[in-house]
């Protein structure tokens, strides 16, 4: 591969890790936090910046924070790989960063203030006219740390030698997971997942409001879940954004308990702002006053829970 006159014409599908159920403990591997955000490649040339997403989409205008990159990188031209994250309660929140991804044209300026993002770098693919894809990972890391002056918004993802300790920590912090990276491996652009990078994910936990119950025939079948929506002014509207329904982990008896609760807290109007009822089911709306802890694997791109499950089914515990 050679760089043309204009680096920004290059399209690179970022390298993807393979999923690994168990942690790969191997002296040849290094471990990093897996950031729950949006993958961004940052191209820099002649003081200009161009941002590209995983699906090759141009995202330059979405993140004006990265316009300073040429001042931070000691190099005339570069391609950086990293994850864009936003925080909520001190933790990366995919939900929060999606607000930036979906910013309406013209409101980016505002969103930049309300939802600050952080660019967590973890690779360097090109520097001063040279491709580094074949360079071993360790060498690329070294160069990345040498070449970048970080600022408050732009950081290099730290690497650790002990994956087990990092996994424990990440679990304690309720973060998404970790990625193991082979020290002597090249950068292999996707979309095929590489075994040089291995991700271990931790189940996600969220506290969601129950906004209603769906019925199959005349039996309660699942709980409808939502999160309270913050308005653009940061005010909670009291309405819920629908994030999916859960039935897994609930016994018939639990559903009956929720049913009688919903009857007591019945609402004639839907507490959800966005909920399109699939046909063939009926619903009972409830005032969103009660939360439930839901375990799930990850967020889907349209911000629903994937594989949601209730692990603590004791209704009494939840009542207080």
């Amino acid at each position: 591969m050679t760089a043309g006159n204009n680096l920004f014409q290059q399209k690179i599908v970022p390298m993807e890790p393979k999923t690994s159920k168990v942690l790969r403990e191997d002296p040849g591997f290094f471990y990093q936090v897996k950031w729950d955000g949006v993958r961004i490649l940052a191209f820099g040339e002649n003081g200009n910046v161009h941002l590209q997403g995983r699906s090759l989409k141009n995202k330059t205008t979405l993140y004006p924070e990265l316009a300073v990159l040429p001042e931070l990188v000691r190099g005339k031209s570069f391609i950086l790989d990293g994850e864009m994250i936003a925080l909520n309660n001190g933790r990366p929140s995919f939900f929060a960063v999606m607000q930036r991804e979906r910013a309406a044209p013209g409101s980016v300026v505002l969103m930049e203030k309300n939802v600050p993002v952080f660019y967590m770098l973890f690779d360097l693919l090109y520097l001063n006219g040279k491709w580094l894809l074949k360079c071993p990972w360790e060498k690329r890391q070294e160069m990345l740390m040498d070449v970048l002056d970080k600022n408050e918004r732009i950081h290099v993802t730290p690497s650790y030698e002990n994956g087990d300790l990092l996994l424990q920590t990440v679990r304690a912090y309720k973060m998404e997971g970790i990625v193991a990276k082979k020290g002597d491996s090249p950068y292999i652009p996707g979309p095929r997942k590489s075994t040089y990078w291995l991700k271990t994910k931790i189940e996600q936990v969220i506290e969601a409001y129950v906004g209603g119950i769906s019925f199959k025939g005349n039996k309660p079948a699942s709980l409808l879940l939502g999160l309270k929506i913050d308005g653009p002014d940061g005010q909670t509207s009291g309405k819920l954004r629908y994030i999916g329904s859960v039935s897994s982990g609930l016994r018939e008896k639990d559903l009956e308990d929720w049913f009688s609760w919903a009857l007591d807290n019945n609402s004639t109007i839907s507490p959800f702002t966005s909920f399109t009822a699939p046909s063939g089911r009926s619903y009972l709306w409830a005032n969103p006053v009660k939360k439930i802890t839901v375990t799930f694997s990850e967020w889907t791109p349209d911000l629903k829970l994937r594989a949601p499950r209730i692990s603590n089914v004791d209704f009494a515990v939840l009542s207080n």
Binding site: L87, P92, K113, V115, P116, M120, P158, V170, Y173, G234
Partner: peptide, 24 residues
């Protein structure tokens, strides 16, 4: 000039990085 001003500006990723580091 908004009723409840959001406070995201105070959340810093540095805090998280250092907490993780200390924890490991």
């Amino acid at each position: 000039e908004i009723a409840v001003a959001p406070s995201p500006e105070r959340e810093k990723v540095v805090d998280l990085l250092e907490a993780l580091q200390a924890s490991v």
